[in-house]
């Protein structure tokens, strides 16, 4: 069953075309890796899927479990089970990490005591009563983002560069948390990665490659990822993989 579909998507941000063509489809059990060079539109695509107000879908549809969510605001998508861990969260002065996590847990009817367990799993207990993002290291910020996914327990999770600017220990903690999500509440993950580091610790089922605003390759072969990482994106342009 298809749980998340981006059908021939085009996305604009502040009137500028960012994604010109994106087609992807996640089924139950999928862990999809989305790679692409800097500025290829990966993060914009994820934001558009999540309903970020600044990323407008100007063509195509987004379907969640068959339901057209293209026009829904982000919080409605969230409530329908779509979660996102963003690449660069803003710092929120005065807003405690605990406050956000507790609100998310409460929203799905959970007990706020879960927050402590989630924080422990991601080694961020010491951050709970600090202002969100203020003075967090890169790895702490990423782990806090993943903690929000654990708090939400989304049916489908979008994870934007969980492995950028973090040490290997953080990547392993994050991979373990994503694994936990897949074993419990989540049907599919779409992970954007630049370095591919996260892919060493998580079992991907398919790979998408995005270049110049277009999804140019979809492959069930995990080797595509290692080929791209060793030969560069030029390999795709030269017909490597099975490009669209």
């Amino acid at each position: 069953m298809e749980v998340l579909v981006a059908r021939d998507l085009a996305v604009e941000c502040n009137g500028k075309s960012i994604v010109t063509y994106a087609r992807l489809s996640l089924s139950k059990g999928d862990i999809a890796i989305l790679i692409g060079p800097n500025g290829s539109g990966k993060s914009s695509l994820l934001n558009a899927l999540a309903g970020h107000p600044r990323y407008k879908v100007v063509r195509g549809r987004v379907l969640l479990y068959g339901r057209d969510i293209t026009g829904l605001p982000p919080y409605e998508r969230f409530r329908l089970g779509l979660g996102i861990a963003v690449q660069n969260p803003p710092r929120l002065k005065g807003v405690k990490l605990r406050t956000i996590l507790e609100a998310i847990v409460r929203r799905r009817g959970g007990e706020v005591s879960e927050v402590q367990r989630i924080a422990k799993a991601l080694s961020i207990e010491h951050l709970l009563d600090r202002d969100f993002g203020v003075g967090f290291s890169g790895g702490e910020m990423k782990r806090a983002e993943i903690a929000m996914l654990l708090a939400q327990r989304p049916r489908v999770a979008l994870v934007d560069e969980p492995d950028s600017g973090v040490d290997v220990d953080s990547v392993m903690i994050i991979a373990s948390a994503l694994d936990e999500l897949m074993k419990s509440a989540t049907d599919a993950l779409l992970i954007v990665t630049h370095s591919g580091m996260i892919a060493k610790h998580i079992r991907a089922t398919k790979v998408y490659v995005m270049m110049n605003g277009r999804v140019v390759l979809e492959s069930p072969k995990f080797e595509v990822l290692s080929e791209v990482l060793s030969k560069g994106f030029k390999w795709i342009m030269e017909g490597g993989g099975s490009g669209r």
């Binding site: 934001n47 970020h52 929120l92």
Partner: peptide, 14 residues
């Protein structure tokens, strides 16, 4: 800042 509001909206808050 708009980006703060937008971020929280992605986390399920209207």
């Amino acid at each position: 800042r708009d980006e703060e509001i937008e971020y929280l909206m992605l986390k399920g808050f209207d």
